[in-house]
Design a binder for these strands. Sequence first.
DNA 1: CTTGCACGAACGAACATTCATTCGTATCTT
DNA 2: AAGATACGAATGAATGTTCGTTCGTGCAAG
Lengths: 194, 194
Amino acid sequence: MEASKSKKQTILEAAAELFRDRGYVATSMRDLADAVQLKASSLYNHISGKEEILQTICFQNANRFLAGMKEIEKRPINNTDKVKALIHLHIQIATEDFTSITAFNDEWRHLSDPELSRFKELRRDYELRFKSIIQAGIDAGEFVSVDTTIALFTIISAVRWIYDWFKPNRAISMDQLEEQIERILLGGLGVKGV
Amino acid sequence: MEASKSKKQTILEAAAELFRDRGYVATSMRDLADAVQLKASSLYNHISGKEEILQTICFQNANRFLAGMKEIEKRPINNTDKVKALIHLHIQIATEDFTSITAFNDEWRHLSDPELSRFKELRRDYELRFKSIIQAGIDAGEFVSVDTTIALFTIISAVRWIYDWFKPNRAISMDQLEEQIERILLGGLGVKGV
DNA sequence: CTTGCACGAACGAACATTCATTCGTATCTT
DNA sequence: AAGATACGAATGAATGTTCGTTCGTGCAAG
């Protein structure tokens, strides 16, 4: 029914930005209302409350990562290329929607408990799928034999916080970023000629 | 004059724990008072206010990292071993005081502005020193030629968030952790036989 | 030995703000 | 006319902090 972009979407995007800059708890509904040129009470014509915003941001991104993961799992490629594709996925999401990724990464713990548990499950699911790919790569002789948990979190940490330091309008291009991170992380797994 | 541990220290440690679990903003002085079996008003006999606690935690840890960095810089060793020593430093601090590291990593942005700027400077100083070591390693032919900024933040991200997933009473020992992280990160820099 | 006093530490009550949210009502769009 | 949207006012709860006071301990003066 809405024309170009629903007011709800505008609110969600402004909220993500505020959450990124000040954090969820430190962002008031008045701050958010100011950002979208409304009064605080008017927000409730579009959203049910503060926590709904956080939920939307968190699960939207969780699903984005999981959808990407499941698509990559299906591809008929070796595990090296799957890890490369996952690195690409992280960089892709982090750069194309880096404002909501911050809220997703930092603020999910302020979810309340039915959703908090569900979120943790999704996160754990993603990590286990990532870990399986690393394990498969070791079994197939593509990777050096490393502890899969350590490798998993080393890689995930490295890519999860890209948004924190990488500004796309920099001396570094996205392709460069991806190629170099692949080289560092996959090189460490013993993959030759990355 | 104090017997075993000053009450101020007790408060600071309890605060670090609460900040880790709920975040700085979401932790009230009443929560903190409960944690040390006091009333909120009594806290002010020991500390000047909420922000002093955050300042202490942040700068205490910032100085710890910088002191470690400066000590490592002085050592007569090659750059590979310096990076190894830095990885060791991060794991050391993350495991021996992992509760205040969380607050240090996540909550520093809630500092107010004279201290906030000072903190950012310290952080930037640390990063630049780290970067210099990587650059020196490339110049000396120890490392493969990579973009130093990308390498820097990939390594720092990987080690900065160890506390987030590593539980010391696990199947993985600290030595194992260190050896494997070295292998992954230094292997990616082209160092042989790590 | 006893009295008096200073002091650290704890407390309950109260402070002014700020918070998210609700409600009744007015204005706009169709 | 009707439905969506915006608003001001008000709500109760929670925030960090201050205040006046009290209690106990240790030490100096008597």
